[in-house]
Design a protein around this nucleic acid. Structure first.
Lengths: 337, 337
DNA sequence: TCAAAAGTGTTATCCTTACACCCATGT
DNA sequence: ACATGGGTGTAAGGATAACACTTTTGA
C-alpha cells in the first residue's frame, strides 16, 4: 500500500479528474437535420433516463492513443454507428456542470468533457437500443426559420426574456440581438448565445438543476420554466449540442462540409434542402445553384433522378479531388502584392 | 490504506491523467507580432531550458472553478502578466507528445493540454525572469510574406520537401498547396498544415525527439534537421502556437478581434500594420481604410498623432458599443425571404 | 391539362480591386 | 524644397440579390 499512497501523492493533480468524450453526430433524414441521441440506463433505478443525451464515454489513457480513436470506438460500441468526418468542438470543464452518474462513479469527481462534431451521410443503420436520431429542432425549436420566423419567438421567448431583463439595458440588448427582436436581423450562427441566454434567464429546465448559480444573480423561478422552449437534455448536453450546431452553421460558409452529409450521388435540390436544414433558413434557388456551380465542387453525371415528384433532376457528385488540387473556398483580406 | 485503494479503484479512469493548460498570448510590439514565451527551469540539471515554451500550468480540479480562471491565475503568477481577451483553442491529448517534466511529475502520466489563445494590447509590462516576448517569425520564418515571398521557401523548404515526397503524388500535392509552390496561391491561414508537413517530413527538430513514430512511416533523418527552419520549442508547443496563429488569422476576417491588440487610441496606419503583422501579408492602404470605415467599428477622435514621421495622422478609437447593438461583421448565404 | 418540381436569362446593386493624385508636417 | 507618411476620388470588374419565365415529368 506504500506504493499506492506514493502514486496517489505523485498524481495528486489528477485526482478526481475524469475525461469524458461526447459527440454531436449529425445526419440528414427525410430532409430534416437529426442528431444521434441516447437514453442512458440508470443502474440505481434500473430504468432508462427520461432525458435524452448525446453519446458519451470515458477516455481511458491506458487504452487510447488519441481522443479521436477513443471516440470512434465507444460510439460504435455504444450506438452501433461508425463515424466518418470528425472534428473537435470544445472542451468543457466548469465546475457545477451536472455530471452524469455513468461517467463519474461514486466520488465527486470533476468531469472534463472533450466534445466532437461528427457528420455522416447515412442515418439509417441499425442502432443499439435506446439510441435514436432526433431532429434538433426538438431541442431548439426557435432555430428553424425555414418556414419563416417561428411564432414561438414572439409569443413565448420574447415576453419571458423581457420579463427577466426588466430595465437592464444590457440584457435587453442581448435578447434583441440573439433572437432578432425589434427589427434586429436573425443570425443563424448564434445558437449557443441563444441557448445560454435562455439558460441564464431560467427558461431552460437545465438551469433549475443547478441550485447554486455561479454568478450569484437571481435564481430561476420554476414557474418560468417551460418545456415548450425545447426539450431539455442530460447534464450540459444541450449546451454541447448548441455549440455543435453553431459551429456547423458557421463552417458551412467557408468549408465544403455539407458534402459529408450527402450520399455519393445527389440532386442540387437535395443539396439545397440539406443546407437549409442545417442553416435553418430558406435559400434562393437560382442563386444557390449559381454559387454551387461557380465553386466547381460538384460535377453533373448526366443521369437523372426519376422520383422527385415533378420533372426529373440531374444527379451530381462531390468532386473530392479538388480539395487536394486547390485551396478550399474562403474569404479575403484586401491583399495587394 | 483500504480507503486509498478503494479511491484509486473508483477513480481508475482518471489515473495518470493530468490536465495542463497552455496559452498562446499575442501582442504587438514595434509593429511585430510577438508571443509570450518562457524558458522553464529544469530541477534535475538546475538550469534553464535551452528551448522556449509557452506559459503552461496544471489545472487543479480542487481549486479552479473554470479553465479560464485557472489560466488567468497561473499566467499572472508565472509571467507577471494579466490576460484580457481569451478564447479556447484546442485540446491536445495524443499519446507520444513529449510531456514537459514540470507538468508530469515522476510518473508516466498522460498529459492532456487544454490550450487557449489570448490577445492583449500591452506588451510592455514588467515580466517574470525567463519570460520574454518573442516574434513568432522566429518559430515560423516562412509565415512572413509582408516583404514578399520569403526566399527560405524556395531555397530551403521546397527542395527538402520534394526530397521527402519523392514520387508520392499525394505528398507533392500537399506540399504544393501548403507552401504555395509551383504557382499555387498562398493561404495565410494554413499555419498548422505547414508546420505539420514539416514535422512529418522530419524537418522540425521536434520530430526527432519522438523515437517511435505513430504512423510507422520513415523516421526523420537527423541530417535533414535544420534549425534554419524556425526555432523549435518545448514539447508540442510549436504545434500549439501554429494552431493559435492559424486561428487568429482566420478570425481576423470575421470578428473584430484586431482591436484587442490595439491601445485605446490608434491611427489607421497602426491598425493596418497590426493586421499585416498578424496576417503576414501586405495590405492595400486605401482599400483597407475603406473596409474599416464601412464596418463602422472605429470613430475618429479629431485629434492628431504628431510623431509619425510625416503628416500627422488622425487618432481613432474602437467603438466597442456596436458589438452590443448590432451583430458583428460576418458572411452570407444567398438568403431569400 | 394541371400540379410539381427542375432548370434558365437578365438586370440593378454593391463590394472589391486597382489606378493616380493631393495634403501636412519635419528636416 | 523635399522626403515621409497621411489621406482622397473615381472607374472597371465581379459577385450577389432580385426579378419572372420555360421545361419536363406524373397523376
Amino acid at each position: 500500500m506504500e506504493a499506492a499512497a506514493k502514486f496517489l501523492y505523485q498524481q495528486r493533480m489528477s485526482l478526481s479528474v475524469v475525461i469524458g468524450l461526447s459527440a454531436v453526430i449529425v445526419a440528414i433524414r427525410d430532409g430534416e437535420a437529426v442528431v444521434l441521441t441516447v437514453r442512458p440506463h440508470d443502474a440505481a433505478t434500473d430504468r432508462v433516463s427520461p432525458l435524452a443525451g448525446l453519446p458519451f464515454g470515458p477516455f481511458e489513457p491506458e487504452g487510447h492513443r488519441t481522443f479521436e480513436l477513443a471516440l470512434r470506438e465507444f460510439v460504435s460500441s455504444q450506438t452501433g454507428f461508425e463515424l466518418g468526418y470528425v472534428e473537435q468542438l470544445y472542451t468543457f470543464g466548469d465546475r457545477g456542470r451536472d455530471a452524469p452518474r455513468a461517467e463519474v462513479g461514486a466520488g465527486a469527481a470533476r468531469v472534463v468533457s472533450v466534445c466532437y462534431l461528427a457528420l455522416t451521410p447515412a442515418a439509417t443503420e441499425a442502432l443499439a437500443p435506446d439510441t435514436v436520431w432526433a431532429p434538433w429542432s426538438r431541442f431548439f425549436p426557435w432555430e428553424d426559420w425555414r418556414k419563416g420566423r417561428p411564432d414561438l419567438i414572439d409569443e413565448g421567448i420574447a415576453p419571458a426574456l423581457m420579463a427577466w431583463a426588466g430595465r437592464d439595458a444590457e440584457r435587453i440588448a442581448r435578447a434583441r440581438l440573439a433572437f432578432a427582436l425589434d427589427g434586429a436581423p436573425w443570425n443563424e450562427e448564434r445558437v449557443l448565445e441563444r441557448y445560454e441566454l435562455l439558460y441564464e434567464a431560467g427558461l431552460a429546465p437545465e438551469a433549475a438543476r443547478d441550485e447554486k448559480r455561479a454568478d450569484g444573480r437571481d435564481p430561476p423561478e420554476p414557474a418560468a420554466i417551460s418545456a415548450a422552449l425545447g426539450e431539455p437534455m442530460i447534464s450540459d448536453h444541450r449546451r454541447i449540442l448548441a455549440t455543435g450546431l453553431g459551429r456547423l452553421r458557421g463552417k458551412l460558409k467557408y468549408r465544403p462540409v455539407v458534402f459529408e452529409l450527402m450520399p455519393a450521388e445527389f440532386t442540387l435540390s437535395a443539396l439545397q434542402k440539406t443546407v437549409e436544414a442545417i442553416a435553418g433558413i430558406p435559400l434562393h434557388k437560382q442563386n444557390f445553384r449559381r454559387v454551387v456551380e461557380r465553386t466547381g465542387l460538384v460535377e453533373g453525371l448526366g443521369r437523372m433522378d426519376a422520383d422527385t415528384g415533378g420533372r426529373p433532376a440531374e444527379l451530381f457528385r462531390f468532386r473530392r479531388e479538388v480539395l487536394t488540387a486547390r485551396p478550399a473556398p474562403g474569404l479575403s483580406l484586401p491583399g495587394r502584392g
